[in-house]
């Protein structure tokens, strides 16, 4: 399987960071960056990572299924992650989550029919003092109000 030249360069750099007999350390970073490029952790990617790190595909599967940020199903173009953990919850995070599910008609780890947006209720993302917080892909949005969320979703292409 071939990756973009940028990702290949990144992977090469990754391997150079770990001792030569510890290529396995690159498993999680490789999965994360490749997922960003491919859209999900496909079977093919699992086998490729296994091949490059010298472990079995099963050992890669063990990792993939453990970590919350590795997804085997394709996500939406914009993956909207709404924190409802304690600090966000105290500041309306739960309500934002409900608002998003209603507006989009999709639930946790579901993708809108047009593939533009997927939703995930997430655990604390480290934005507690600027709650409630939302992450769209890797971008943080702090102190999100219902109105701001509405605008965000519209911008991301959600139907009215």
């Amino acid at each position: 399987m071939t990756f973009s030249p940028e990702l290949e360069a990144k992977i090469e750099r990754m391997f150079s960071q770990y001792p030569p007999d510890r290529r396995r350390s690159a498993v999680i970073p490789m999965l994360m960056y490749a997922q960003d490029e491919i859209g999900s952790v496909t079977r093919e990617l699992v086998e490729e990572v296994a091949r490059r790190t010298g472990i079995t595909p099963l050992a890669v599967d063990e990792v993939v299924t453990y970590y919350s940020m590795l997804h085997r199903m394709p996500l939406g173009k914009s993956h909207v992650q709404i924190c409802t953990n304690i600090s966000c919850m105290l500041n309306g995070g739960t309500e934002l989550w409900e608002q998003a599910t209603r507006r989009l008609g999709i639930g946790h780890k579901e993708v809108s029919a047009d593939g533009k947006i997927s939703l995930e209720e997430v655990e604390c993302m480290g934005a507690c003092s600027w709650a409630p917080a939302i992450q769209v892909n890797y971008d943080f949005y702090h102190q999100v109000t219902p109105q701001k969320l509405d605008e965000m979703l519209t911008q991301l292409g959600a139907a009215r």
Binding site: T56, L58, A59, D61, E62, T65, Y66
Partner: peptide, 15 residues
């Protein structure tokens, strides 16, 4: 090495 552990928490399974 044909068996592994997948998923996390109470839904962990052998695979």
């Amino acid at each position: 090495g044909a068996l592994g552990i997948v998923n996390r928490g109470s839904v962990s399974e052998i695979a």
